[in-house]
Amino acid sequence: MAGTGKAHLRDTDDIILRVEDLVMEFPVGRTGLKVNAVSGISFDVRRGETLGLVGESGCGKSTTGKAIMQLPRPTSGSVLFEGVELTTLQGQEMREARTRMQMIFQDPISSLNPRRKVRDIVREPLVIWKRGTTADQLGKVDALLEEVGIDPARAAESQPHQFSGGQCQRISIARSLVLDPTLIICDEPVSALDVSVQAQVLNLLEDLKTKHGLTLIFVAHDLAVVKNISDRVAVMYLGKMCEVAPSDVLFQAPAHHYTAVLKDSIPVPDPEIAVAQVAIEGEPPSPVLPPAGCRFHPRCPAADERCSSEEPQLREIGDGHFVACHHPLVGGEAPVTVRSATDA
C-alpha cells in the first residue's frame, strides 16, 4: 500500500480541487534529517462532493489539509483550485484565493480570539475584505449565526469562553462561511466533542453543505464519522495514499490491508458482535525514516519480498475504487494472520 500514482484522478470539468504529487517535508532540527509528513499524494474533489481523509496520527492527513491552504506551502507538487495553481500564487492573489476556501479546526475554543465578542469574530473577515456596508455585514453575520443555531443577540454580547465546545464549533463554522467560500477543509472538527454534540455538528455540516453549495474536505481519524459524512474516502498511512473509494464501497469491501485493520479496530457499540482480536500490533514507524517499498509492509499480514522493495501504485479494482497494494483483499476479507512491526 501506501503507494503513489494518479490513476484515481478524474477527468471531468466539475473538479474544483486537484492535488498532484503533493510533498510536505519538515527538517528535524539541524540534524539534516526530515519528517516525511506527506510523500507524493494526489487526489481530486468534485464540486459539491465531500472527500474524507482518514488515517492515524502521523499519516499526514492534517498536513495535507493545511497544504491545500498553502499553510505552509508544500515542499513540492501542485494544488489546482478552481483552475488556479495555488503553489505559485503570491501576495494579494493568494489572499484572495484563501477567501474561497476556509478551514475549521479541532479545538473550537482556542481557534477563536478569546478577547473579542463572538459576533465581531464572525464579522471580522467581512471587515477585512470591506464587503458591503456595516448594516449588510451585520445582517449577514446574524443570518449565519441563526443558521448555525447561535442566538445573534447573545453573540453580540458574549466572548467565546461563554459558549460550550459545541457552540464554539458552530461559531467557527459561521465564521468560515461568511465570505461565501466554495471549499471548506474540516480538520477533525468533531473529535473534541461529545457524541451527542458531534451528531449535531455533523448534521449541521450536511445541511450547510446543501444550502450553500459547499465542497468539503473532511479530515478525521474516526472511520464511522468519516463514512457518515463523505461521498468518497481516501485512506492515508505514513504520508502515502492507500486506498480511495466511494464511502459505502470502501467500508463494505476494503481492499487495502490497512483499511481493513482500521475498520476492524473500531469498537462497535454492540456486545453481540464479538470483539475482534486485536487487528494489528505495534504503532506506525517514524515518518523520519519511513520503510522502503510499500510503507505499510512491516506491519502487513500479506507482505512479501516485493512489498519491501517496490512501491505499489494506485490502480482501479472496481468502479471508482482504487488501491495501492500488490496483494489487495478481495471482497473485504479481513487479514488472517498478524505480524508486528517490532517482531519483524
Binding site: 457524541v195 451527542s196 458531534q198 451528531a199 449535531q200 455533523l202 448534521n203 450536511e206 474516526d222 472511520l223 464511522a224 464519522v225 463514512k227 457518515n228 459524512i229 463523505s230 461521498d231 464511502s247 459505502d248 467500508f251 475498520k263 473500531i266 462497535v268 457499540p269
Partner: peptide, 16 residues
C-alpha cells in the same frame, strides 16, 4: 447519536 459503519453514508444522525 453514534455514527455507525453499517449504515450507508449520509444517514441522518439522531441528536439530543
Amino acid at each position: 447519536s453514534i455514527p455507525k459503519l453499517d449504515e450507508p453514508s449520509h444517514t441522518r444522525l439522531a441528536t439530543i
